[in-house]
Design a protein around this nucleic acid. Structure first.
Lengths: 345, 345
DNA sequence: TCTTAGCACTTGGTTTGTTTGAGTGCTAAA
DNA sequence: TTTAGCACTCAAACAAACCAAGTGCTAAGA
């Protein structure tokens, strides 16, 4: 249990350290705090805070820096998100104000905006497609042997892929396949489609084609790509600013971590309604020991829920960051609702 | 004019320094060289080489390192490309051996292979499309207001883009546009198409649509994207290994340089039949002062010519790198010919 | 004339020691 | 409970000393 004064001191330590990066000592605190006590008193309180594992020293006679637990306490109990700077609001609204023709453009643009605002690295995941349904499938013959497969979902997502057909296939046959898929699968959720694709469909398609597997593979490919959570990264290079003593190896593993599509869900953690903060070793991943991750979901009504996140050094100014993330999730949700409304009507 | 012995010494200095990264002294050279002379003699010769600006000292009593001019002389007169390691041949052939369905896959895969072989950063440009011709154009209605535009060239390239149509457009109208474009533009080279698009076409299309500009913009978009040289980068992270003293700023400018599509042609320089080497400040770009760039073209007969390149530290083992680039350009050309042959027949 | 042994000299890097300043814990008095 | 005072610690900055590698030059030898 912390006294009021201890909280005040802890808050000041975190604030000061996140701002300056220098361990903060009793004297500086005494001068800075609103209450009027001597540095010796501060020292006593700091000893108590250290006792509880909330702050620590970098060496035996140094000032204090927050421990991970200290940051945690600060984030959970002491911080208040800063309201956005007018300037920041401007940036968001102009960057997001344009006319977009694809959801992906909005989401990827968002990653850039977020990284600019924070000067950290930002992630954006588009709303999950798990619940969206197949609304159309096309096969468009392009040349002698090339065909493009196009898949459309009811939420306006389009996924396509070109492939070669190994044998000569007639337009009629293609048509038949398309008709079959559209008859049987349209309206189902993507996971359901994927499942049927492995059971019912191969039998039926065999009527039209001798070796149907090729087609189904392609269709499956396009499908899984569409169903996969697609994520975007902004401000990759900002990570360079925080890799202390330029440890190339850890930088590399960091970069390969954030570029691997499959891992990202693991890294970000499960979605939650609140804005969530993960600090340093609270994340299991070794490469992230000196980083903090702020994640937040955004809801687009029946169109599902997506996620945004920023990754920065453990000593980030949390109040400002929480403010930005909180505001941005709202703006993004609004923008997407707008987009869908336009698209639906 | 260099004597035989001076050449031998220069070659040895470059070899040694590129291998070890340590300035090389007279004693080490005396031991290493095939001829039997004392270190004092070597010192005299080195003084002569320094006189000519081919090698230099890092400080008044240090060993010598090659100057840019020294590297240049070495590359122009002394180096012999190493033959490929059996292991490397293996890597190339298995990585390139698979079944590809798109040229872009081959080219992008090539960047990865090259970067793996060299442990530097690799670039690959696909064969220019300037000379290839439009072979087909499609507009595929996807939903109420979404349409996909697809463009195919005679070299098998496919480019597509989804867009919203602001007004309700009937299928008939779309068909008419498609027919018009196919009638008027198929068979022309892409630059010609682009040109006609600004002159003849708008007039004709006005018969079918009230506000044709939207469509033409889209078509133009897709077209320019297809005509643009597309390039791929492999081994981005390898740059981290060579950024001495972790100068974050120069790293950043380096990365933004290689990620900007429009600049890449400038950076790589004009294509030439030979393998070309650019060393340090021979490149005007500030960010590249400590790097060397090896570029080479590859020819795919009538399908045009592309480019590959590797970017590494000035002190790279040139003989090995020249060997790799030389061999790889051939393999890639072969593979692409194969691909086109399959595609054409 | 070319080569080489020998030597004085230069320099960066490493080690070792010193100083300084910010900060701490503890004690004893207010 | 607070605070002034004091002894103590440690990183960082600076300086001195030393070492190893290498150089240029000179003078003798082939």
């Amino acid at each position: 249990m912390l006294s009021e004064r201890q909280m005040m001191i802890l808050r000041a330590v975190v604030r000061d350290f996140t701002n300056t990066g220098v361990p903060v000592g009793s004297k500086a605190l005494a001068k800075q705090l609103p209450i009027h006590v001597s540095s010796a008193t501060i020292r006593n309180e700091m000893a108590a805070l250290e006792e509880q594992g909330l702050i620590k020293k970098t060496h035996s006679s140094s000032g204090r820096i927050p421990s991970v637990e200290g940051y945690r306490y600060y984030v959970d109990h002491l911080v208040k998100p800063d309201p956005l700077q007018p300037n920041d609001i401007d940036v968001i609204q102009t960057s997001l104000g344009g006319d977009f023709h694809k959801i992906d453009e909005i989401i990827s643009q968002s990653a850039t905006i977020l990284s600019n605002l924070t000067s950290y690295t930002a992630f954006t995941l588009k709303p999950e497609l798990k619940d969206s349904r197949l609304s159309g499938f096309r096969l468009v013959p392009l040349g002698k042997r090339q065909v493009m497969a196009i898949l459309v979902t009811d939420s306006g997502d389009v996924e396509n892929q070109t492939f070669d057909v190994s044998e000569a296939v007639s337009g009629d046959q293609l048509e038949a396949v398309v008709r079959l898929i559209n008859d049987q699968l349209v309206g189902l959720t993507l996971p359901d489609v994927l499942q049927k694709l492995q059971t019912d469909i191969p039998l039926k398609i065999a009527n039209y084609l001798q070796s149907p597997t090729g087609f189904l593979d392609i269709f499956g490919d396009v499908l899984t790509r569409a169903a996969q959570e697609r994520f975007y990264v902004g401000g990759r290079l900002n990570l360079l600013n925080f890799s202390q003593d330029s440890d190339v190896d850890s930088l590399k593993s960091l970069y390969s971590l954030i570029d691997k599509t499959d891992d990202i869900a693991n890294v970000l953690g499960p979605p939650s309604d609140n804005i969530s903060v993960q600090i340093g070793n609270e994340m299991t991943n070794d490469a992230l020991q000196n980083f903090s991750l702020i994640t937040a979901t955004y809801d687009v009504n029946q169109h599902g829920r997506g996620m945004i996140a920023i990754l920065g050094p453990t000593r980030m100014p949390y109040s400002r960051m929480l403010g930005i993330v909180g505001a941005f999730r709202e703006e993004l949700a609004k923008k997407l609702l707008d987009y869908y409304r336009n698209y639906d009507e």
